[in-house]
Nucleic acid binder design. Structure first.
Length: 578
RNA sequence: GGGGGCGUGGUCUAGUCUGGUCUAGGACGCUGGAUUGUCACUCCAGAGAUCGCCGGUUCAAAUCCGGUCGUCCCCGCCA
């Protein structure tokens, strides 16, 4: 049996006889003297074989061995300062080869950039031996543990909800599971435990949380997997949304303190949805850099310049951002920024380089006074670059410009900027012009908007809130509807008919009639949280066995066709085309 | 559903634009040998590739064209 971990040996262990077990990281062989770097989860220790062992010469990378030996201090000059255990080594008395390894497809050293991601995923069990993944998964564990500790200590119960459940009227495509016992019928894997957690509140659980897998059959991205892990929570009798926000802030503060030793500033800043759009051009702004959007419509309202005049005349505006110290940007770079703005929906982009004078392709269309007041509106100083957009719907392109410049100027791992975004619209229009829920149909409207829901649905705001970290949406929540009447009004507005509502979630409407307390909650993407804490750029680097962007698993080759017999049992037959 | 990048020994890649010089180069890894203080050991010798797949153009294709598969990024989509 092993007595120690490789990476934990230190000069304090000198003289001890230890038993180690692990993988051969590397062998350096001098015939009668051989060094082997032995690796386990904690790190690497150098083994020294000098007693003419023959078997040591047969060791290859990733062979699994156990050794008995004595910890010795390395002589002066043989210390390796670049190695955690570089001051000691283990003089081996006995070697046992536990298992041989084929030559691995890639070396376990390094961060993985020496192999394609597909190869890494196909041999994930080798990739997992890397320090980078071991560190990410350990962080993931500690984040999960401290999350559970926090909610448990605050009176929350972790209770599981079913995976084999019913398709609910939410936004994403469902993963379906055919029922053998009821041929032709299907379970759906949950997109979230939304209705179940509301039923917990109706069931008097009062405070519920769960770290739980959710499933959404949509196209993938580097920050989106078909199955992902959420922190799901719900409380009864909240004092408005405040109770939920304070709990989440407490949870994040606890987790960051326990796992990274980082103290988060609380309360987190808040902006309303409307404010976020007008100041940052997005509903998930990255607050690590300023560069707020500056609306100069009033400044140029009477301008002779046609582009400005027409933009404002047509109900649009003129606004821009200040790229401080960027007046030396070459034309090619400015063109690239313009491309970003245009591909986000802008008609064009105007730039002004601020030096002693202001230079710009449009300078000749503007008066001295206008140039000066634009400069003043942005508080621009010599060396700055002003980027202007004009027209309608320019917020999003401005937001893209802001991101492009901000992320270039500042390192992306610069701290943790949490933010609440509140007061989202209750409804929005889909591409066919139909009303849909901006959050989900169980979100309550602000009380003052309830009387006018039917007359002015699009101006109703909701009791919904998003948590944003460094420009990434970490999660969202809301105070829910707990009255059947209001819930039915919402369904009617969404054109979900009485019959359809009954069939799809009549069970839930019925539950609302049996003493549903006021309640609200939140759901937070744990994979994304860990990704950001680990400073990784892909979810796949913080998930042990992730899927590729086409939803396949190179390790297991899932998904796979199944036999006709298996299909038959389920009462299924495939189309000819596939 | 749409746009873009990539696919060459075990791994990563050069070569592809401008077809012939490629009998496909390099690095790492691997195999055999030498080596008592290495830690990216070193030295000597060696093996290893239907250039993702199918088809086309051409005297000639890793290279050009069409299709297809895989993978990555982005838009749509993801309450």
């Amino acid at each position: 049996m092993r007595t120690d971990y490789c990476g934990e040996l230190s000069p304090a262990d000198v003289g001890r006889e230890v038993k180690l077990a692990g993988w051969v990281n590397r062998r350096r062989d001098f015939g009668t003297l051989t060094f082997v770097d032995l690796r386990d989860r904690t790190g690497i220790a150098q083994l020294v074989f000098s007693k003419g062992e023959r078997e040591v010469h047969t060791l290859n990378r990733e062979d699994v061995i156990a050794v008995t030996g004595t910890v010795a201090r390395r002589s002066e000059g043989n210390v390796n300062p670049g190695m955690k255990t570089g001051a000691i080594e283990v003089h081996v008395n006995a070697l046992t080869v536990l298992n041989r390894s084929k030559t691995p497809p890639f070396l376990v050293e390094g961060d993985g950039s020496d192999a394609t991601e597909e190869t890494r995923l196909r041999f994930r069990y080798v990739d997992l031996r890397r320090e980078r993944l071991q560190r990410s998964l350990e962080l993931r564990h500690r984040v999960f543990k401290s999350t559970r500790d926090f909610f448990s200590d605050n009176g929350f119960l972790e209770i599981e909800t079913p995976f084999l459940t019913k398709s609910t009227p939410e936004g994403a495509r469902d993963f379906l599971v055919p029922s053998r016992l009821t041929p032709g019928s299907f379970y759906a894997l949950p997109q979230s435990p939304q209705l179940f957690k509301q039923l917990f509140m109706i069931g008097g659980i009062d405070r519920y949380f769960q770290i739980v897998k959710c499933f959404r059959d949509e196209d993938l991205r580097s920050d989106r997997q078909p199955e992902f892990t959420q922190l799901d929570l719900e409380i009864s009798f909240p004092n408005d949304k405040e109770d939920v926000l304070v709990i989440l802030e407490g949870a994040m503060a606890h987790v960051f303190r326990e796992t990274l030793g980082v103290e988060l500033d609380r309360p987190f800043p808040r902006v309303t949805y409307t404010e976020a759009i007008s100041r940052y051009g997005t509903d998930k702004p990255d607050l690590r850099f300023g560069m707020e959007i500056c609306d100069i419509s009033e400044v140029v309202a009477n301008s002779e310049f046609r582009v400005f005049r027409e933009a404002i005349g047509n109900g649009g505006k003129v606004a821009g951002i200040l790229a401080a110290g960027c007046s030396s940007y070459p034309r090619s770079k400015i063109d690239r920024l313009q491309e970003i703005a245009v591909s986000a929906g802008a008609k064009g982009m105007i730039w002004l380089k601020v030096e002693e004078e202001v230079s710009s392709p449009i300078a000749k269309f503007l008066s001295e006074g206008e140039l000066a007041s634009i400069r003043e509106a942005f508080s621009a100083r010599a060396g700055d670059l002003i980027l202007l957009l004009a027209g309608q719907g320019i917020e999003r392109p401005l937001g893209e410009l802001r991101l492009a410049i901000g992320r270039e100027k500042k390192p992306i791992d610069d701290g943790f900027g949490f933010l609440w975004v509140t007061d989202f619209p209750l409804f929005e229009l889909d591409e066919d012009g139909n009303l849909t829920s901006a959050h989900h149909p169980f979100t309550s409207p602000r009380p003052e908007d309830i009387p006018t829901l039917e007359e002015r649905p699009l101006s109703a705001l909701s009791n919904a809130y998003d948590l944003v970290l460094n420009g990434t949406e970490l999660g969202s929540g809301s105070i829910r509807i707990h009255s059947r009447d209001l819930q039915e009004r919402i369904f009617r507005l969404l054109r979900i008919g009485e019959e359809e509502a009954q069939e799809r979630f009549g069970f839930f409407l019925r539950a609302l009639e049996y003493g549903a307390p006021p309640h609200g909650g939140f759901a937070l993407g744990m994979d994304r949280l860990v990704m950001m804490m680990a400073n990784e750029r892909s979810l796949r680097d913080v998930i042990a066995f992730p899927k590729t962007t086409t939803g396949s698993c190179p390790l297991t080759d899932a998904p796979m066709p199944v036999s006709d017999a298996q299909l038959g049992e389920l009462g299924l037959r495939l189309n000819e085309r596939r």
